[in-house]
Simulated scan of single mutants.
Amino acid sequence: MKYKEIAEKYGVSINTVKSWKQRHSWQRQKGAPIVKGVHTKKPGAPPGNKNAVGNKGGAPPQNSNAVTHGLFQKYLPAESLEIMEQLQARSPLDIVWDNIMIQYTAIIRAQQIMYVKDRDDSTTTKVEVKSGNVSGQRWEVQQAWDKQATFLQAQSRAMATLQSLIRQYDELLKTDLATEEQQLRIARLKGEVEKINNESNPEVVVFKDDLHE
């Protein structure tokens, strides 16, 4: 059956069906024709008169749709429910990696937003306007060194958070079934993070896990 057909049959979104496919390892046999109403189960699946999700009706075993749609549907918008359904198919390793990418992207973007050109790069901003018996304006001037100091403090906190996430990812690599690609991408990211640290700070920053006695 197609995603759309399964979604309509069980009254769920297409993204939920896709998450079922990933979670329960649904596979179409190679060379099998796509026939409407027929689903080819993975070899070794339990025989009997069962539907596409492996039972006699409803969602896969241990599925939390009843909780999600019963409890949260009253309070959360449809977009949030859809995100929750997709997250059910994500492993802890994937979730930590998503957080790493979000944090790393924010750091790179901050490099552009908080860029200080040179020592004469000051910013003057009108912060208050008074009218009536007493009128006037108040302006705030940020000198280059103030802007640079603010940027370094913010980046230092963001980098500490990023490094903490990377260490969490490293720990999950030791316990979870990680692919070679997942292991290589974290090694590459470590090099990029150290490069940013070295350019922003005079001291060299290294990961504790990389230190050897």
Results as ranks from 00 to 15, higher is better:
3 Y>G: 00
4 K>M: 10
5 E>Q: 14
7 A>R: 03
7 A>H: 06
7 A>V: 13
8 E>N: 10
15 N>I: 07
15 N>E: 10
17 V>Q: 05
17 V>P: 04
18 K>E: 10
27 Q>C: 09
27 Q>S: 10
32 A>Y: 15
32 A>H: 14
34 I>N: 15
35 V>S: 03
35 V>L: 07
36 K>V: 05
36 K>A: 02
37 G>Q: 06
39 H>R: 07
40 T>L: 07
40 T>C: 07
46 P>K: 08
48 G>R: 00
48 G>A: 00
48 G>F: 05
50 K>I: 15
50 K>F: 14
53 V>F: 05
54 G>H: 03
54 G>M: 09
54 G>L: 07
55 N>K: 01
56 K>H: 10
56 K>F: 04
57 G>H: 01
58 G>F: 04
60 P>Y: 07
61 P>F: 08
62 Q>H: 14
65 N>S: 09
69 H>M: 00
69 H>D: 08
70 G>R: 02
71 L>W: 06
72 F>N: 10
74 K>S: 02
75 Y>Q: 14
75 Y>V: 12
76 L>Q: 01
76 L>K: 03
78 A>R: 12
78 A>Q: 11
85 E>A: 04
87 L>H: 12
88 Q>F: 02
90 R>M: 04
91 S>H: 02
94 D>K: 04
95 I>D: 05
98 D>I: 03
98 D>S: 08
103 Q>T: 12
103 Q>A: 06
108 I>V: 15
113 I>H: 13
120 D>T: 10
125 T>S: 12
125 T>G: 07
127 V>K: 06
128 E>N: 11
128 E>M: 09
129 V>R: 15
132 G>M: 02
133 N>Q: 14
138 R>W: 10
139 W>N: 10
140 E>Y: 04
140 E>A: 08
141 V>K: 11
141 V>N: 13
145 W>G: 06
146 D>H: 00
147 K>E: 09
147 K>T: 02
149 A>L: 01
150 T>Y: 05
153 Q>T: 09
155 Q>Y: 07
155 Q>A: 09
159 M>S: 12
159 M>A: 11
160 A>D: 15
160 A>L: 13
164 S>E: 15
165 L>W: 00
165 L>K: 00
167 R>N: 13
168 Q>C: 04
169 Y>F: 12
170 D>P: 01
172 L>M: 12
172 L>Y: 03
174 K>C: 09
175 T>R: 08
175 T>Q: 03
183 Q>A: 03
184 L>A: 13
186 I>P: 03
186 I>S: 05
186 I>M: 13
189 L>Q: 06
191 G>Y: 06
192 E>C: 07
192 E>I: 01
196 I>A: 04
196 I>F: 04
198 N>M: 09
199 E>L: 11
200 S>V: 00
201 N>R: 15
202 P>N: 10
207 F>K: 09
213 E>N: 12
